[in-house]
Nucleic acid binder design. Structure first.
Lengths: 289, 289
DNA sequence: ATCACTTACGGGTGACGTAAAAATC
DNA sequence: GATTTTTACGTCACCCGTAAGTGAT
């Protein structure tokens, strides 16, 4: 059999045209490359080059061999990445989310449940989530509603309620204890994170007359909010998660409309339930309590 | 990149099940194989095995890697044979013939015209000759008639006339100088070579009442003929080629029917004419003289 | 005790680099 | 003279085999 470095040498020569150039490209000396080419011919029992005293070029057979070598090297490379990807997929819990809330919270649990696994999280539209679930990109997805399908299982996994985040001086801050409805704040301008998944559809629908100032960077967002007097959004989940490090004077007022609460559902392919057994138990236990 | 010997080692382990068995199969020591497997994991940056203290097995990733390695090794092997075949095809003049005569004579010329090339000869039916010509199996073919086609060129290349080969005591031997017709010998039993291409069709058609004793081995044939009193066949070509070493008392009588003379034609693909330029010149010059 | 794998150690093959020669431009 | 290839030679890497150690059957 032919060692790979010989195939690489042949391809390099084919691409570079001269032994010297190819040797430089391969970071080896030119005589070493010359020997490799001789060795390759020797192994194949075939002459691959036209040699003059100070010039060497591929002959017909050599050109063919170089082309085939390139194909083999390519498939070797494909193999390597395929193996690495497969291994990676076996060692990462990959999930897709419809909103940032669970995407921030879930990995905290996942690293507990699967301490040896990497955790990969992505936010996507619902169609892409379901697509990714089917093609193996995601081990499970978190949707904003129940999803019934013979191929999948669907487990409720908590809810998230939207809050208005207001400066104390805001007139609506008086409703601190009663709560507010979307309609009461319709028309106001809000500061908002750029990527909030389905929340975006919801707010645009429920606050049709409002304008939204988007801030893509989540890190910068809280600074922007603190520096601004504009109303913003929060949720019970983000309030809980960030309570400690938020030192803002904002007050949070619950939104009373039922649409302001999302009941999340964890959806995975039925054939993968064994793989996520621990996660399922965890969610079920949490639901019972 | 991964050296081939590592892939071979992985496949061997996959096939053999244990390192010891695989090492024996590969004719290397077991520790060497153990190290190779570690090295492979190291290069890939991925673990391929489940290891207990005295047992090692492929994990999921390892199984996948072994399967892919096998595919790569296979395509490497395919590459090697393809290169060797291609090289061989560039260095051999491969021809197909419809009768043994030209198949014996032509190589004599071909080795003169292409001293560096191997010469390969085969006898086949006309359909297979044309098929082989199209698919590259034959560089050219010798047919028993002209063949006109836009893709091919056709050059007359001599003729061969059939003779009866008789013992002097045979009644028809009297026709030594006039010649004979097929009909005059119809009904006789002939000794004949087993594989004589289109001559077979011809004799069966022209001597419908005759029986033919076949002798496959061409070496044995002349001995059989000499030892027998049965009539046989010869041709001007075989008489000329074997004149020196034939010490038989047979007399040869020309067959007068026009069908008894085949006018051979050399047919090659038009696109290959450059490759066979010297052969074409040779045939044309011979035709003019 | 045997088997199977890993680790440790010493040795030899072979691939590499440097140097020099030959030939072409 | 500069470039390119080949040959020669010494060196070093690395792959191998032997030997020893560990744990399981």
């Amino acid at each position: 059999m032919i060692e790979t470095y010989l195939l690489e040498a042949l391809c390099a020569f084919h691409d570079c045209g001269t032994l010297s150039a190819a040797a430089e490209y391969l970071h080896i000396s030119q005589p070493a490359l010359s020997r490799s080419m001789q060795k390759l011919e020797d192994i194949l029992g075939v002459s691959l080059f036209e040699r003059t005293k100070n010039r060497i070029t591929l002959n017909e057979t050599g050109k063919m061999a170089a082309a085939m070598a390139a194909r083999i090297l390519e498939s070797q490379q494909d193999m390597i990445t395929a193996i690495r990807n497969y291994d990676s997929s076996l060692h990462t819990v990959s999930a897709g989310y419809c909103t940032p809330g669970p995407m921030m919270e879930m990995p905290l649990h996942l690293t507990q449940i699967y301490p040896k696994m990497k955790v990969s999280s992505e936010m996507e539209s619902e169609v892409d989530l379901l697509k990714g679930l089917r093609n193996g990109k995601y081990g499970f997805v978190i949707l904003s509603h129940a999803y019934e399908d013979p191929d999948t299982v669907c487990i409720p996994c908590g809810s998230e309620s939207l809050y208005f985040s207001l400066i104390p001086a805001h007139p609506a801050a008086l409703f601190k204890d009663q709560g507010l409805t979307f309609s009461q704040m319709n028309g106001e301008t809000f500061v908002m994170a750029g990527d909030i998944g389905v929340w975006k559809d919801l707010t645009e629908k429920m606050l049709p007359d409002s304008r939204f100032v988007l801030q893509d960077s989540l890190e910068a967002l809280s600074a922007v909010i603190n520096a601004s007097t504009l109303p913003a959004f929060a949720s019970d989940l983000t309030i809980r998660l960030f309570r400690s490090r938020e030192n803002s004077s904002r007050i949070f007022i619950k939104i009373l409309d039922p649409e302001a609460t999302i009941h999340y559902h964890c959806v995975m392919l039925r054939k993968n339930t064994a793989r996520y057994e621990k996660l399922i138990s965890f969610l079920n236990e949490r639901n019972e309590s």
